[in-house]
């Protein structure tokens, strides 16, 4: 009498991921004003930072033409961080409201469900990063080339996915939207404790030490290609490797969180 008792095929899993990602985007597309803070924050950050610290580009050893060119990639990654955090905040709300139970009742691997949850974060990061990118161009930052642009948005989506995994882990643990500041702070720190404001050689000693071990440093340097210097393979692979490494660790943590719900 049951029609759907067979196990899922690979394409069935992919359809689940796509369907969940689409639902995640409703938050941006259907709630008027909901995306404004996530877009406004990195844009204000970019405009504010470049008008306040603009003179820093005159320091000897500063590699970019001007400060705003140097920080546009930082603003884009801030947007990615906010979008990733928003994925976790929305999950926490879904947990509070009981929707998440419905999702857990789906007979699909928990990893498939997780992929659906975090991939909406990746798509969502495009909105703030495109706005920041456009604001940068409007301020007179030069176009980083087609390859540089594509690479920048690919890395933005990658970082957002990683931070969505991080925020998801927190959401599954705390099960309340009150954990939102914790989710947002993680990405904020990760993006700023890098050569965000100045080339690595100009950083304070302790900041330099943190930046070297912070994987987001390599992502940022990857995004910066085209804005500062040409796009090269030697600048690209560390960024991709950093995303991959973060994704493995953070997705594993999130997957563990998924498996442990209900224990």
């Amino acid at each position: 009498m049951s029609t759907a008792v067979t196990a899922l095929t690979a394409s069935g899993r992919l359809r689940i991921v796509v369907a969940l990602a689409r639902r995640g985007l409703n938050e941006v597309l259907r709630v008027p004003g909901a995306s404004i803070p996530g877009v406004l924050a990195p844009t204000i950050f970019l405009l504010g930072i470049s008008s306040v610290f603009g003179a820093a580009a005159k320091l000897p050893g500063f590699t970019a033409d001007d400060f705003k060119t140097f920080v546009v990639p930082v603003g884009m990654l801030q947007g990615a961080a906010f979008a990733g955090a928003a994925t976790g905040v929305n999950l926490a709300r879904d947990i509070e409201r009981g929707w998440f139970d419905r999702l857990l009742l789906v007979p699909a691997p928990r990893l498939t469900l997780l992929a659906g949850l975090v991939s909406s974060g990746a798509l969502r990061s495009l909105l703030p990063s495109v706005v920041v990118f456009a604001a940068g161009l409007a301020l007179g930052v030069h176009f980083p080339g087609v390859l540089g642009t594509l690479l920048a948005f690919l890395l933005v989506m990658g970082l957002s996915t990683c931070l969505a995994c991080y925020a998801t882990t927190l959401a599954l643990h705390f099960r309340t939207q009150q954990a939102a500041p914790l989710m947002q702070m993680g990405g904020f720190i990760a993006v700023l404790f890098t050569p965000a404001y100045a080339p690595a050689d100009l950083l304070a000693g302790w900041m330099h030490a943190i930046a070297v071990v912070n994987p987001v440093t390599y992502v940022l340097q990857g995004v910066r290609q085209g804005f500062v210097g040409p796009v090269t393979w030697s600048g690209t692979w560390p960024a991709l490797a950093a995303i991959a490494a973060m994704l493995v660790v953070l997705a594993a943590l999130a997957a563990r969180g998924m498996r442990q719900t209900g224990r």
């Binding site: 008792v5 409703n26 938050e27 009981g98 007979p107």
Partner: peptide, 18 residues
């Protein structure tokens, strides 16, 4: 089990945006 059961939840947790 999940493939063979249907569950209507207490608060009818639905997504109002859809």
């Amino acid at each position: 089990v999940r493939r063979r059961i249907g569950v209507a939840l207490q608060e009818a947790a639905l997504d109002g945006l859809m």
